[in-house]
Design a binder for these strands. Structure first.
Lengths: 225, 225
DNA sequence: CTTCAATAATGAGGATTTTCATGTTACTAA
DNA sequence: TTAGTAACATGAAAATCCTCATTATTGAAG
């Protein structure tokens, strides 16, 4: 479940970010119109949370871009109450739902889930890929019936890739997701290589050898054969 | 706060200039590409406001120059709306934010402040507590002149406590901050005890034995002396 | 003041994570 | 097609982290 948050107020952004990450979403962030524009064009998201009032451009444009292109992405608008009224009046904004500031985070979460439920019915507590099943409640992975003994890093890498199935995930993105603030610049990807190797071995030893594909020069992709 | 404004339309320039001066900024002005180029090379500015459409050269070049010199100057682009779209498409212009004409001046001011806030947060250099100095850029901790060899967890615990100096920090808060999603309920604080112990030893071995105080039943507190 | 229970500190061992050196594979350009 | 180079894989060693058993300390109750 990958969410793009486009919001320029740092405080609010971090609040949302921390909350959604804790809720188990994979999040990416943009703080300007342009940044949001780029991310929308480069990746696929399950849901986009867009503040209408953005530096550098109108959030509505981003909504339109999302709608015109691949319409799989759920769209949740957030906006200050006063500016919202102007905009939605007589406007088909093309979003799936909207929230006015201020809102509380559990409300946001409820809306996201509602939007996603409408989109696809893919919000179970496990990810099932046939031979490979990831149980999110118990942090347990089953390959061809066998429970895998994964370390935390291995589990988290697998989960991150699986949640972005069929999408290419960059190494930077993996690093940021798993290590967060630790790494400032000056990066080696050796530890990713190492963990992916160990992960692949454990998968392969249990008949799930083909799930993790290397994308040369970019990163990895979780693919269902 | 010193700002360079590079803009060739006299009316707009004077409008901006008068407004920003009233807001308390120190301003300098350039009206051509060459003039802007020289000023950028001769002085250091906290922020540069650059019109893309300049006589004598492309404003983007100036942006690139500023970026490549790895100056810490914040960059704010202004541009006519129609020319902007061409340029941002697939272009990493390297600016911190941009505005399209026409804009109102309080909007400009807000953007400047936002850019500067992002910059200064990003480059805050060190936390100095006398004998103990935490260098954020290099992730380096110095105690009585000696560089400590801290592990990542140790560094992060120390940093977290130091940022909350004189405040009591709960163990749950520490755990959440350092381990995030990993731990769902069912918690033991043994690893915090362990890391704090090792951290204290390293501090004490270098004459900084009294910074971390245990708050029985709650957590820890970073205190000076 | 003493005892008790809960909390914290400690040391050591095992598990995990990271690094390093080296081998292999995939892309690029000629 | 073939070097040449950058990216990735691999195994093993080193560093770090976590767990566990034990000991010490704290605050509260008697």
């Amino acid at each position: 479940m990958k969410i793009l948050i486009i919001e320029d107020e740092q405080d609010l952004l971090e609040l949302i970010l921390r909350y959604l990450k804790k809720e188990g979403y994979v999040c990416e962030v943009a703080t300007t119109f342009m940044e949001g524009y780029k991310k929308i064009n480069n990746y696929e998201y399950d849901c986009a949370i867009i503040d209408l009032n953005l530096p550098g451009g109108d959030g509505l444009k981003l909504v339109n871009i999302l709608r015109e292109d691949s319409t799989q992405t759920g769209i949740l608008i957030i906006s200050a109450r006063d500016t919202l009224d102007d905009r939605i009046t007589g406007l088909d904004i093309g979003a799936d739902d909207y929230l006015t500031k201020p809102f509380n985070l559990s409300e946001l979460n409820a809306r996201i889930k509602a939007v996603m439920r409408r989109k696809t019915n893919q919000f179970s507590k496990e990810l099932n890929f046939g031979d490979l099943i990831i149980n999110l409640d118990e942090h347990k992975v089953t390959a061809c019936g066998n429970t895998l003994q994964l370390t935390k890093k291995e589990y988290n890498i697998l989960l991150y890739l699986a949640r972005n199935k069929a999408r290419v995930v960059t190494k930077d993105s993996i690093a940021e997701h798993l290590w967060g603030d630790y790494m400032d610049g000056a990066v080696s990807y050796d530890f990713i290589y190492a963990h992916v190797k160990n992960l692949r071995k454990k998968l392969a030893d249990n008949g799930c050898g083909n799930f993790l594909k290397t994308i040369y020069g970019i990163g990895y992709k979780f693919q269902i054969n």
